[in-house]
């Protein structure tokens, strides 16, 4: 069964790119969220196998959302989407429980490699 992914990013544009990568890689994107609050809600509702999480978002940032998601399910797999220059924030997110990270702009092969590793499929 294809693994279920929740894509979180405040940019519709970026979400579309990531969604296309997942679709091409044989994953099912079960939902998307545009801010941290929505991300937590959607996570609880959809119980995805994996979440990709933007760092900088309005309203509740990716780090707080990751923390909240891990609190509701400590086995949740959250992969951060970061840009170069956000190393400190990524480390904070890892501290909060994120399992890995991908660097924007996302390249299909990088994203799929990281995700497969995290899911133990590599």
């Amino acid at each position: 069964m294809p693994k279920k992914v929740l894509v979180v990013d405040d940019s519709v544009f970026m979400r579309d790119i990531i969604k296309d990568i997942f679709a091409a890689g044989g994953f099912t994107v079960v939902g998307e969220a545009g801010n941290g609050v929505e991300a937590v809600e959607k996570f609880k509702e959809l119980k995805p196998d994996l979440v990709t999480m933007d760092l900088v978002m309005p309203y509740r940032n990716g780090i707080d959302a990751t923390r909240e998601i891990l609190r509701s399910d400590n086995k949740a797999l959250v992969v951060m989407c970061s840009a170069l220059g956000q190393e400190t924030m990524v480390m904070e997110a890892i501290e909060a429980g994120a399992v890995d990270f991908i660097v924007k702009p996302p390249r299909a092969e990088d994203v799929l490699a990281v995700v497969k590793k995290v899911l133990g499929e590599a």
Binding site: S11, M14, I17, M57, K104, P105
Partner: peptide
């Protein structure tokens, strides 16, 4: 903060579009 977020978003999109 808000300005920073907007600039950041534009940067991310632009670099994704090369």
């Amino acid at each position: 903060d808000s300005m920073f977020r907007h600039a950041h978003s534009v940067k991310g999109m632009a670099s994704s579009m090369a």
